[in-house]
């Protein structure tokens, strides 16, 4: 089963709501108390702390402020539910022993809260293979006075390392390279999409040849007065049935060849 990160973004603090009940009534799950754990990286190891027990049919809201003293500054905070407590330290991300469902997947509410409002999405994260890559087209940029746009690249891998990778941002039509920025594994990488010359007709394309991520697009108006958040689908979602991952491979190969640094 999945981990549930606590998000971060400009002008906001993260808050994640976990649910110890199944999203459906027909995939068999154990109706039992589960342990809420916090997992993070420190000294090149995964550390896990049991926060509390969560009764079946109950929920738990964990705010970043609740756990900020427990983790190193800037570390990715991962929450989880499991039937057993996680090992205090491990060299690989612990595999969670818990009930899971597929239709739909069990999710948590991942939220960002500013001084004025909140935005959320229903999400989860599973570890990506370290040799995977990212291709995302972003039609989410919003414009106007006081509007800022960011992409939050959220990565999780099994090994407790902070791999440095390069993220490239292009204009899809002109193929012009707009920005190169470093990002790190096991992190929510906040990348500004402001002041890059994109306008309402631009379709930004963001790639990382060395690391996969969940790309979350975040917009803020007047320092958090209004917020907007959504993620793009992986390219495999452009098709259904047949060889979807063949389609994903093809579209990635095409764009990685087209876009040159």
């Amino acid at each position: 089963m999945s981990y549930f990160p606590i998000l971060k973004a400009p002008y906001c603090t993260g808050s994640t709501t976990l649910y110890n009940f199944s999203p459906n009534n027909w995939e068999l799950v154990d109706k039992c108390e589960q342990t809420v754990s916090l997992t993070y990286i420190k000294d090149d190891l995964w550390y896990s702390v049991a926060l509390e027990k969560l009764a079946y049919q109950d929920y738990k809201v964990v705010k970043h402020n609740d756990i900020s003293d427990l983790i190193p500054d800037g570390a990715l905070a991962l929450l989880s539910l499991s039937k057993e407590e996680l090992p205090r330290t491990s060299e690989e991300l612990p595999v969670l022993n818990c009930s899971h469902t597929y239709v739909p997947m069990s999710r948590a509410t991942l939220g960002l809260k500013s001084s004025f409002t909140t935005t959320v999405y229903q999400g989860e994260i599973n570890p990506f293979p370290s040799q995977a890559s990212l291709l995302t087209f972003s039609p989410f940029l919003q414009f106007g006075s006081g509007v800022e746009n960011y992409v939050l690249l959220m990565n999780l891998e099994k090994l407790p390392e902070s791999r440095k990778v390069v993220v490239e941002i292009y204009d899809a039509h002109s193929k012009e390279l707009k920005k190169i920025q470093s990002a790190y594994s096991n992190q929510i990488n906040i990348i500004s999409l402001n002041d890059m010359g994109f306008n309402e007709q631009s379709l930004p394309v963001i790639i990382c040849r060395e690391m996969a991520s969940i790309p979350l697009y975040f917009s803020s108006y007047k320092c958090g007065e209004i917020l907007s958040l959504e993620h793009t689908h992986p390219p495999a979602s452009l098709v259904v049935h047949g060889n979807r991952f063949g389609a994903q491979k093809q579209i990635k190969e095409y764009w990685f060849a087209q876009l040159k640094k």
């Binding site: 209004i226 793009t232 047949g242 063949g246």
Partner: peptide, 21 residues
């Protein structure tokens, strides 16, 4: 690839003329 193109893209809503959708 015997697949079908699927439009599962992105809708945005503007409520009460808000400056962000």
């Amino acid at each position: 690839l015997q697949s079908f193109i699927a439009e599962r893209g992105y809708v945005s809503y503007q409520y009460k003329n808000a400056p962000l959708r």
